[in-house]
């Protein structure tokens, strides 16, 4: 187990290093931060002082080590756009993005798996076909369009739910949460549906396909012959064996969740990391983009590691290699 984790961690190092080099190259060689920060009026001495302060007069490898070292200490430099520390910008916006992604993935799993199980067991029923056609349309709809249509129906026409922002938030130390206020809870509904819908359809289709495979196997027939209750067969025996690919997809899709939170946060003006990133791209604010890239790289490596560990927990066959026997 420990060997497994260590080997995975070692494999992650080159990936992180590559991401670090790309982020650093962007940070250092793209654009003219000095010119941008000084503005129109400056003396040569001011310019040199700023160059020195930003460390741009050192050799490249030293700057790289310095950059990584600083990044490890949570220092990602200053944003060109708003002249604030990038780390501070991130810290303020992180809770909003995490709460949105968390709600969206819970929604996708809690709704997606039961729908998939249903469509897998009663695959010829009318309702299952409605789910399948609906999921096909869901895959062809871009995220931003889902958001716009939801706003059109539930905010503009019906006026039930707010169309932008997080509502009132409560501060718990440096963390701000919208889960504790009525307006915060109402505000998260539409963004979470928008962000989670693609994942939901994907999980549903996958669970359905896996259930169809598993329900054909002999051990399910045997369980039926033994007279076990349908509920126990479907959820205890069948669903459990569909989980390995489902966990993979959920894990890999967390990356997609981060990517599409950029879109969802733009549609709903949700004050998170994604909105910050897109504003930075539009303004060519390189330090923020580089830090975002680093952060996303780390998140991806961590997600892949967790997915691998979950395999290990879910599939006993993977444990046989080290001499143990499966349950």
């Amino acid at each position: 187990m420990i060997v497994f984790v260590i080997s995975r961690l070692l494999q992650a190092i080159p990936v992180l290093l590559a991401v670090g080099v790309v982020a650093f190259s962007m940070f250092t060689y793209v654009g003219d931060p000095v010119g941008a920060m000084l503005g129109q009026d400056y003396t040569e001495a001011q310019r040199d002082a700023l160059v020195h302060k930003l460390g741009l007069d050192q050799p490249a490898w030293e700057q790289f080590l310095h950059y990584i070292w600083a990044a490890l200490h949570g220092n990602f430099g200053y944003s060109y756009r708003v002249a604030e520390p990038v780390a501070h910008l991130f810290a303020v916006r992180l809770p909003a993005t995490l709460e949105l992604s968390f709600t969206a993935s819970v929604l996708a799993v809690v709704v997606g798996i039961p729908l998939g199980v249903y469509a897998g067991i009663w695959r010829r029923s009318l309702l299952s076909r409605v789910f399948m056609v609906g999921s096909l349309i869901g895959v062809s709809l871009p995220t931003f369009l889902i958001g716009i249509l939801l706003i059109l129906v539930f905010s503009v026409e019906l006026g039930w739910l707010p169309s932008f922002g997080r509502g009132h938030v409560v501060a718990l130390g440096w963390w701000t949460t919208g889960f504790l206020t009525w307006s915060g809870l109402r505000s998260i509904i539409l963004p979470a549906i928008t962000l989670g819908l693609f994942q939901l359809t994907l999980i549903m289709r996958l669970v359905r396909a896996e259930m169809l495979e598993v329900l054909r196997t002999d051990y399910i027939k045997f369980a039926r012959a033994r007279g076990l209750r349908a509920r126990s067969i479907h959820f205890g025996h069948a669903l459990r064996n569909t989980l390995v690919p489902v966990i993979t997809i959920i894990g890999l899709q967390l990356g997609g969740l981060i990517a599409y939170s950029v879109v969802t946060e733009t549609v709903f003006q949700w004050p998170g990391m994604g909105l910050l990133f897109i504003q930075s791209v539009a303004a060519a604010d390189i330090p923020v983009m580089a830090a975002y890239l680093l952060l996303v790289g780390v998140v991806f490596v961590v997600i892949n590691l967790i997915v691998d560990l979950l395999y290990y927990a879910v599939d006993p066959r993977l444990r046989i290699g080290r001499g143990g026997r499966g349950r």
Binding site: P14, V15, A18, M26, V30, G31, L252, G255, G256, I258, A259, Y260, V262, V263, F277, I278, S280, V281, A282, A284, I286, M289, L293, V296, F300, N304
Partner: peptide, 26 residues
């Protein structure tokens, strides 16, 4: 193949946004 692995785990829309942002700055 390692390069393509790394890129596959990275969502394409983020990749495209980054490329767009870098070119925009250059």
């Amino acid at each position: 193949m390692r390069i393509s692995d790394v890129q596959l785990t990275f969502p394409s829309i983020l990749m495209a946004l980054l490329v767009d942002g870098v070119v925009g700055a250059l």
